[in-house]
Design a protein around this nucleic acid. Structure first.
Lengths: 134, 134
DNA sequence: TATAACAGTGTAATAATATAACAAATATTG
DNA sequence: CAATATTTGTTATATTATTACACTGTTATA
């Protein structure tokens, strides 16, 4: 039976590994600078890897930051329901894992006649640490 | 009583008016091309107007598209709670006005110790028209 | 087995999006 | 009026992302 291969290619592995090691979201060009010693020389090589990694749910894009973060949520293999908390002060980003929230949003319907297949939610505020320091 | 002025400057008016007339979200450089006859010559002039208009809640940025849309929701003057539906096929974008949803999200708390002051939600799917055409 | 289909790679060029830095004009507040 | 804020104009540049083209290797199947 033919099936989609599930290994990652060389460039995909390199890019994923950098993102997974990072403490926060990484920008594409910062990834590029970090992997140049590994033979990835051009932006496109990074963007292609990012595209695939997003597609298979290994990473997510933080749209408000144009940055990429590893998926910490084994549920969202398909990356169709994502939620993040973002600290306005220290820029810390965390994927929100909350079953109630994801159920609520996945089942959300309004009167538009539109059936939503995917969502992305970004919350902004101050994280606990930054709140204390204020 | 001193209060923040509430008029829009010349450039802000020009940019807002273009965005309000548009049927969908506009990109910054497409706005620029549209307003060059009105004396706005440089990207920065557009971006500055956009920044201000976002700040006062007259427009919103659709992060996944790097595009800007007029606010249709008199509630969100401060632009701190935004939700959009985006059709993956025709690219139609609509601001979602749903009290339950906005209450649910504005009051959302998890165990992170973070208090959320703002959120942005983007739903993706097929709009009614595109669903029928499939 | 060959040949088509597909996914990935490499490279150069360029497009699209956004900001920095500086100087000047205009409006608002005290 | 003086001081402060905001807005404008302009040039240059930074940042983010894609197009186009040629090539390699693997898998699928006729």
């Amino acid at each position: 039976m033919p099936q989609k291969h599930e290994y990652l290619s060389k460039n995909q592995q390199i890019v994923l590994s950098i993102i997974e090691k990072a403490k926060g979201p990484l920008k594409a060009y910062s990834i590029l600078y970090n992997v140049q010693k590994k033979g990835i020389k051009a932006p496109l090589q990074v963007y292609r890897a990012l595209e695939k990694l997003i597609e298979i749910g290994k990473i997510h894009k933080i749209e408000s930051k144009n940055a990429f973060i590893a998926c910490k949520n084994s549920d969202c293999e398909i990356s169709k329901a994502t939620a993040f908390s973002i600290c306005n002060n220290c820029e810390h980003v965390k994927e929100i894992k909350n079953t109630k929230l994801s159920k609520y949003l996945s089942n959300f319907e309004d009167n538009s006649g539109m059936k939503y297949k995917k969502y992305n939610l970004e919350f902004f505020g101050l994280c606990r640490d930054c709140k204390l320091k204020q």
